[in-house]
């Protein structure tokens, strides 16, 4: 009866190991390699720790057998035990070092990637540029789609400070350093939505700098990419087209791009298909018309310190603008 009671909180504690952002629930090639390495090191260390604890308990409970004079034999035995322990330590640490080195080496696979994405991290959002000379390049923000089972080469850059690109479920982390380019290869083995997070403290809103990797089958990935390549949707809805006029008149276009319109700003995220994304403001809020309106109305209160200024709008203009943003699927 007692054992099950002790095990009762276990599911609650272990539930933290799963989910869309967990290095222990690896769904990618390099993620699985790293998870195996972690599990192996933990198991080996656990065995060593249990052995040491047993020895400690044994030596604490053992009684001295009175013959203090006969020290020669006990000293010899001590020597054997100590050299055995030293040899075991060298073997274990050496073995783990070699394994760790080999695993980390095999993560960095050179070769011809199936897809290249350029990542530009900025305070505090992610710009993703799909580079494809044949079909045409396009940009997204804070959300990427990748085909399952394909090698995706991620070229990491930063425009301001050092950030770190980390999708725990798919692989290890890699820093984005201003002025240089780092490379990382992702390969998702199963379809799913994996959350990524900036893993290097980069300022006030470091915690609100998330992104999503959506791994899907080749066919649906192609469909998504084809949609993303198209210019921003022309909507027939009156409210949304009024919102487009507000977007141009209020100078949103000075910072944001919507392909197919006059908006060609480059400092803010590309909004050509903003309505198709899951979240806004780098994972801060779900993408709904209400949260879009809240964000436009007062970005500095929702995410203090970010680089989007508050632009005064009337209630009608705000409603039209958020309808337009939502219509950009």
């Amino acid at each position: 009866m007692r054992a099950p009671l002790i095990l009762l909180p276990l599911p609650v504690l272990l539930s933290g190991c799963g989910g869309s952002q967990s290095a222990l629930d690896a769904q990618g090639y390099s993620g699985a390699l790293l998870r195996d390495l972690i599990v192996l090191i933990v198991v080996v260390c656990l065995v060593v720790w249990i052995g040491v604890m047993i020895m400690l308990a044994w030596s604490l409970t053992r009684r001295r057998d009175g013959q203090a004079g006969d020290s020669r034999g006990s000293e010899q035995r001590l020597g054997v035990w100590v050299s055995g322990a030293v040899a075991a330590t060298v073997l274990i640490i050496g073995g783990l070092t070699i394994l760790s080195f080999q695993t980390t080496r095999s993560l960095d696979r050179a070769g011809d990637p199936d897809l290249t994405i350029r990542v530009r991290a900025q305070q505090w959002w992610w710009q993703f540029v799909y580079e494809d000379a044949d079909a045409g390049s396009f940009q997204t923000a804070n959300e990427i789609h990748i085909p399952v089972g394909k090698e995706v080469r991620v070229r990491l850059e930063s425009t301001d400070v050092i950030h770190s690109f980390w999708v725990p479920s798919l692989g290890g982390k890699q820093d984005l350093v201003p002025g240089r380019e780092n490379l990382l290869t992702l390969r998702a083995e199963r379809p799913g939505v994996y959350r990524g997070q900036c893993a290097e403290f980069c300022g006030l809103q470091h915690s609100h700098m998330a992104f999503f990797v959506i791994a899907e089958e080749e066919e649906s990935y192609r469909q998504w990419a084809a949609t993303q390549r198209q210019p921003g949707a022309q909507t027939g809805e009156a409210e949304a087209s009024a919102g487009k006029a507000v977007f141009m008149a209020r100078r949103c276009a000075a910072c944001h791009t919507i392909r197919g319109t006059g908006a060609t700003g480059t400092t803010g995220p590309d909004l050509t298909h903003v309505g198709s994304r899951r979240t806004i403001a780098a994972g801060l809020m779900d993408n709904t018309r209400g949260s879009l309106a809240a964000w436009i109305a007062d970005p500095q209160t929702l995410k203090p310190g970010n680089n989007m200024p508050l632009v005064p709008l009337t209630g009608d203009e705000l409603r039209q603008l958020s309808a337009y943003m939502e219509s950009l699927k």
Binding site: A249, R250, P309, V311, P312
Partner: peptide, 8 residues
């Protein structure tokens, strides 16, 4: 006037 609030 139309692009910034008065406190900005």
């Amino acid at each position: 006037r139309d692009r910034m609030t008065i406190d900005e």
